[in-house]
Structures are given as structure tokens and as C-alpha cells.
């Protein structure tokens, strides 16, 4: 068979130019949506270019034209299987009230492991404080105001006047960004088979257990509860949620119970990870505001209110995660992407 390359290129070039023009228009105007006729024409041009590429590769030793067509077909292929237009619109209320708690429940085992890592760390921290209190400073990190005797701090903070808005926004922003960073980190380090996630949770648990034991042993249980419960009742579960996401990644890394490839396993959990870490980030924004504008005000008069607030908040969060969005059929996947071809 003879392919007259010159004639072939001359004949096909108008179609290639037309396809290039459509692709360029999409690049220049990202919001441009094709009409049905334009989409059909695009599909036809893509098939024609694909066919030309096959002909050139099989029947001609022409490299330049093949390269040009490969590039054209690659770009068209990507656009033809565009998945943005076929996504279900994001519905924040539905996501928050139904998808988030359902996703949390679907991966409850990961949450339990995450919680236990944190809790065992807490017990370990309490043990350190009981048996080797001189090591306390090694575990409290940058929180140097916790290094002294709890009763001294309580006396000092209870005698302070209300300080209006002084540095509250800055403090709140620092807390939010630090906690969200730790939560995301707890998730992403799950890539190392969950070992670092468990270690991170355990280490954070040590610090908390150590402080709790220190304050209770010094008779400052009420101060401690009034100080930690309002924000901790949201902040700590959020960090444990980050650990849950990390352990979901770890499970995907191990690939237990499936013969899917790593890329396929990640594809399956991707939207669940985003849901959990997104929910945790929302909780941490709220926790940052509470910690900054409520938790730092101390006085025997407001402890009952703070403790009640924290207790109600913790109960509400637990009920929300356990029961919200239960309608008999759980959404099996939180993915908002449909219609993408599986080419594996």
C-alpha cells in the first residue's frame, strides 16, 4: 500500500487546523461550553485525527507529522474525557450533614485505632508525670507556660482582668493554622504505612495526658476542665479525624483484601480523604475561635458555664458523627465525579 504523504497532509490539514482551533478556544476561554453540535464536531475531528495518526504510524515513515498528531490527539483525548462538566454540583449542606458523618462511620475502625493511639499516648503521658515528673518539660513543646506548678498558673490567670480583644485574633489564627497543619500532616504521613501517623497521635497524646495528670494531681481539675473542654472537645476529635484519614491511606498502602493496584486503591479513597480532612478543618476553625475567645478567660464564676458548654458541644459532636444523615441507606461513596472512564 502506498500513502501519498503530501496529498494526505494537504487533505487532512483543514481538519487538524479546525481541531487545533477548538482546543485553543478551550484554552483561552476555560468557561466556554460547547453546544451539542460543536461537541459532535469535536468528537468527529478527534476520531479523524486518531485515524490519521494510526495511518501515519503504520504506512509512513514521517516523524514530524506523527509527533504533531500525537500532540493533537493527546490534547483532544484529555478534553473529550473532561470530567469537570459531568460533576454533580457541590452541595455544602448535604456534604456536611450527610456525606461527612457517613464517611466517618464507614471508616470507623480507622477512627478507633486513631483514638486508641492518642489515648494510649495520654495514659503514657500520665505515667511519665506520675513516675518521672522531671521529664515533663521534654513533652510540653512550645507551651512553656505549662512548665510551672499548675496552682501558680491558676492563681495568676484568675487574678487577671478581662483584656478585651487584645491579640485574640492573632492567637486564634495561630491556633487554627497550627492545628489544621497538624491534622493534614497526620493524614499525609499515613503514606508511610500509618506508622508515623500513629506515632504523631501517640506523641500528642503524651503531652495531653501529662498535663491532665499534672493539673488533677495539683487539685486544679475544675480549672483544667473549664480551660480544655470548650475547645478540646472539638479540637482533639478533629486531630483524631486527621489520624483516621492517615490510617485510611495506610490501609490503601498495604492493600489488604484487594488485588487492585496502588493507583486504583488511592482513586477509591480519594474523596473520602477529602471529606474527612475537610470536616476536620471546619471543626478546627471553630475550635480556634472558641479557644481564643472563650477558653482563655478564667474565673470560678464562669467555669460551670464553660464546662457545660464543652460537655454539650462534645455530646453534640458525638451524636452528629454517629447519627447524622442516617436514612437507612448510607451513601457508598462520597465521590462527586461520575462518568469518568476506567482505562486500567
Amino acid at each position: 500500500m502506498i500513502l501519498d504523504l503530501d496529498q494526505f497532509v494537504s487533505k487532512e490539514r483543514p481538519y487538524w487546523d479546525e481541531l487545533t482551533g477548538l482546543l485553543q478556544k478551550q484554552d483561552d476561554q476555560p468557561d466556554w461550553k460547547m453546544s451539542l453540535e460543536e461537541a459532535r464536531r469535536f468528537h468527529y475531528l478527534y476520531h479523524r485525527a486518531s485515524s490519521d495518526l494510526v495511518k501515519l504510524k503504520n504506512f509512513a515513515g514521517e516523524v514530524e507529522a506523527s509527533l504533531f498528531l500525537e500532540n493533537l490527539v493527546a490534547r483532544s483525548y484529555s478534553r473529550l474525557h473532561e470530567r469537570r462538566g459531568s460533576t454533580i454540583p457541590f452541595r455544602p449542606v448535604h456534604w456536611l450533614l450527610r456525606v461527612f458523618p457517613a464517611t466517618f462511620r464507614r471508616h470507623w475502625i480507622a477512627f478507633v485505632i486513631s483514638f486508641l493511639s492518642f489515648f494510649i499516648g495520654g495514659v503514657f503521658g500520665a505515667g511519665i508525670m506520675k513516675f518521672t515528673p522531671e521529664h515533663k518539660t521534654h513533652f510540653i513543646g512550645p507551651f512553656t507556660h505549662l512548665a510551672g506548678k499548675p496552682s501558680d498558673r491558676v492563681a495568676r490567670e484568675e487574678s487577671q482582668d478581662f483584656d478585651g480583644f487584645a491579640n485574640r485574633s492573632t492567637f486564634s489564627a495561630q491556633l487554627m493554622q497550627n492545628n489544621i497543619r497538624v491534622t493534614i500532616l497526620a493524614m499525609v504521613i499515613g503514606f508511610f504505612f500509618g506508622i508515623l501517623t500513629i506515632f504523631l497521635l501517640f506523641y500528642n497524646g503524651i503531652g495531653l495526658g501529662l498535663i491532665i495528670y499534672d493539673y488533677i494531681a495539683d487539685g486544679q481539675g475544675e480549672f483544667l476542665t473549664g480551660w480544655l473542654l470548650p475547645h478540646g472537645s472539638v479540637e482533639i476529635p478533629a486531630i483524631i479525624l486527621g489520624g483516621q484519614a492517615g490510617l485510611i491511606i495506610a490501609h490503601a498502602m498495604f492493600g489488604w483484601g484487594t488485588n487492585l493496584r496502588l493507583a486504583q486503591r488511592f482513586r477509591r479513597i480519594r474523596s473520602d480523604l477529602l471529606t474527612i480532612v475537610g470536616g476536620a478543618a471546619l471543626l478546627l476553625v471553630w475550635a480556634g475561635l472558641v479557644e481564643s475567645f472563650l477558653s482563655q478567660y478564667h474565673g470560678p464564676d464562669i467555669y460551670p458555664f464553660k464546662i457545660a458548654f464543652g460537655t454539650i458541644q462534645l455530646t453534640a459532636l458525638a451524636c452528629f458523627l454517629l447519627f447524622a444523615g442516617r436514612t437507612g441507606k448510607n451513601p457508598q461513596s462520597t465521590t462527586y465525579t461520575v462518568g469518568s472512564p476506567e482505562l486500567t
Partner: peptide, 12 residues
């Protein structure tokens, strides 16, 4: 797989 990116992929 040569396809365009989804929002989930970009965020992850």
C-alpha cells in the same frame, strides 16, 4: 491516564 484533572486530585 492522560485525562484532565478532577478537583479531588488537585486538592489531594
Amino acid at each position: 491516564r492522560g485525562l484532565s484533572l478532577t478537583a479531588g486530585q488537585i486538592v489531594i
